[in-house]
Design a protein around this nucleic acid. Structure first.
Length: 574
RNA sequence: GACUCCGUAGCUCAGCUGGUAGAGCAAUUGACUCUUAAUCAAUGGGUCGAGGGUUCGAAUCCCUCCGGGGUCACCA
């Protein structure tokens, strides 16, 4: 069927628009509607003895209707929830004219329409708090049919669960699956809690460029774009680290940013091309201080959301109670493989990898090898929040060398549920060392590592002016939201996860081309309805086209003469 | 990228080893003044994701493509 054609129910709803207008009712009125109560507020606080809520005015979507002759029940859904309304014909139509009830409410309104109602709250014989409607107004008509989800005793019937439709049409998901809203309300609360925490310490929220001439601060493939006036390539940021540290150089002692980062890499349950990262940099601190800070921060978030440090996640409970376990990377590997890699060279590490059945290749240096061992054998074991400390220097070109071991850096990652949640350094502020590190990244890149960092000379210049000792930390907000709201997929904590665009139905108007082929006008119409193009139709066998056309005619009972097989052959031959 | 499963009415789903497309909700018409997955009666609604093949005959079997889910790989 032609996608531009309306379904039966859509036609009916569009007709209702006209019927409403004929009755002098604007289905899309301009003026607002005063709201003095919400569904949840009424349900929580109504008390028949107090006689409160006797003049309520609310607005929302009609989500169900039960019509019984001259009285009806319906459910109205507002921002917070649903409440039942009771409509009696003679109450909303006190005079002779019963159109508002008989025609407008019963026939022209549908599930999904917005209405405003005024009335008083009461409890029905079945014991449900409801609004007795005294005034009803159409606020906005819906001409597309919502999925109908019903619920009884907490059980859902015909739930709207198809992930593709839920993500592509999130608005529908939010309307019919109210629990989805909760996830995003919690996400907002997470961000607010973090922001309040940082502000209470006196740190400054800042904004830094998303369009960057050099994509720095992380190892990842960027999206590339182009600035026309400057005629230069620009990259969407993969991290904001280097800009925030420039601000520390500039004299701010604490800066943070909630940043959308963009990485042109694979997508799966935990990766979306654009995602949100919070990065914070604090002067005169080191990574030990940052571990304490991170613990306090996450404990606060857990308490703000759950009133306890224990957070359910799948079949596990994650406990964010301070302090978290701390272990060095070398000890973590020792713990899970029994092998002490301390002091090993590249060849020895490769042997270890072989013994552990970890694939290696020529481009891998010491750092990468250690990272592989950790990733394969250790990472997934850290379910409860655990700081993994002291990473190999090759993997951390922006991080200060360890104060007691020059092969390591003062870096930690916080593992939760077997995944990285935070990443933090004692920041490298030695400009000479930083330049050398950038240069060795260049060597890695020449060796074939396609995600080694670019040299950012302006950043080195900034460090040359002097940066105070600083510790910085980055945290994936999407991942934090997944943990705190018990979701397994990043798509469930993003309103609009990236999807392949929907295939557009081609609507080419090839009327002239069809005419040139000698096809009669009445059949051109049919061919277009069947979705054929002038080019495409030539690839169809004349026999099949003949059959299809005659079949279409029969099916739709068209009063036009069938073409002969030879005629069809002639059209296609031209 | 590999493997695997899925795509049937507005929605949720049946449809066996090929033989004229089914149900519930929603819709339409009617009944009904406290219902709540309201109920009762009647009615309409589908080129079964797209294209090709096998066959007298394909929603069903085969191939290609499109879209999506899951697992893995790559990637933080």
């Amino acid at each position: 069927m032609n996608p531009n054609e309306l379904s039966e129910q859509e036609v009916i709803r569009r007709n209702s628009l006209e019927e409403l207008r004929k009755l002098g009712i604007d289905p899309y009125p301009h003026e607002g509607w005063e709201i003095n109560a919400s569904s949840t507020e009424i349900l929580a606080n109504f008390n028949p003895e107090l006689k409160n809520f006797q003049e309520v005015s609310i607005a929302g979507r009609i989500m169900s209707r039960r019509i019984m002759g001259s009285a009806s029940f319906a459910e109205i859904q507002d921002q917070f929830g649903r409440i039942q309304i009771y409509i009696k014909r003679d109450d909303i139509c006190p005079g002779e004219n019963k159109d508002l009830y008989n025609t407008v409410f019963k026939k022209l309104l549908d599930i999904g329409d917005f209405v405003g109602i005024k009335g008083y709250v009461f409890v029905t014989q079945m014991g449900e708090t409801s609004i007795h409607v005294q005034e009803l107004k159409v606020l906005s008509k819906s001409v597309r049919v919502l999925p109908i989800v019903k619920e009884k005793d907490g059980k859902l019937f015909d739930a709207f669960t198809d992930p593709e439709q839920r993500y592509r049409q999130r608005y529908v998901d939010l309307i019919v699956n109210p629990s989805i809203k909760e996830v995003f309300i919690k996400r907002s609360k997470i961000v607010n809690t973090l922001r309040d925490f940082y502000n209470s310490k006196g740190y400054l929220e800042v904004e830094t460029p998303i369009l960057q001439p050099l994509p720095g601060g992380a190892t990842a493939r960027p999206f590339t774009t182009h600035h026309n006036a400057l005629d230069i390539p620009l990259y969407l940021r993969i991290a904001n680290e280097l800009y925030l540290k420039r601000l520390i150089v500039g004299g701010f002692d604490g800066v943070y940013e909630f940043a959308k980062d963009f990485r042109n890499e694979g997508m799966d349950r935990t990766h979306n091309p654009e995602f949100t990262v919070m990065e914070i940099y604090v002067a005169y601190k080191d990574y030990n201080w940052m571990m304490d800070f991170t613990e306090e921060m996450l404990e606060r978030v857990a308490l703000a959301l759950h009133n306890t440090t224990e957070v359910p996640l799948g079949d596990k409970i994650i406990d964010f109670k301070r302090p978290f376990k701390r272990i060095t990377m070398v000890d973590a590997i020792k713990e899970h493989t029994g092998i002490d890699i301390n002091g090993m060279d590249e060849a020895q590490l490769k042997d270890v990898c072989k013994k552990l059945h970890i694939e290696v290749n020529e481009t891998m240096g010491k750092g990468k090898l250690i990272d592989e061992i950790f990733g394969e054998k250790c990472e997934s074991h850290y379910i409860q929040p655990t700081f993994i400390m002291d990473y190999p220097i090759e993997m951390s070109p922006l991080c200060k060398k360890h104060r007691s071991n020059p092969e390591l850096t003062e870096r930690f990652e916080l593992m939760v549920n077997g995944k990285e949640l935070c990443n933090a350094y004692t920041e490298l502020n030695d400009p000479i060392d930083q330049y050398e590190r950038f240069k060795s990244q260049l060597e890695l890149s020449e060796k074939g590592d396609d995600e080694a960092m670019f040299i950012d000379l302006d950043f080195v210049r900034a460090l040359e002016y002097g940066m105070p000792p600083t510790s910085g930390m980055g945290m994936g907000i999407d991942r934090l939201a997944m943990i705190m709201t018990n979701q397994v997929s990043i798509q469930d904590v993003l309103f609009f996860p990236q999807m392949r665009p929907e295939k557009k139905a081609k609507r080419e108007d090839d009327t002239e081309a069809f005419q040139a082929m000698g096809i009669p006008t009445e059949w051109i119409e049919v061919i277009q309805k069947m979705g054929h193009t002038a080019e495409g139709i030539k690839a169809i066998s004349p026999g099949k086209l003949h059959n299809d056309l005659c079949g279409f005619k029969k099916k739709n009972k068209l009063e036009i003469a069938s073409p002969t097989q030879d005629q069809v052959k002639a059209w296609l031959a031209s």
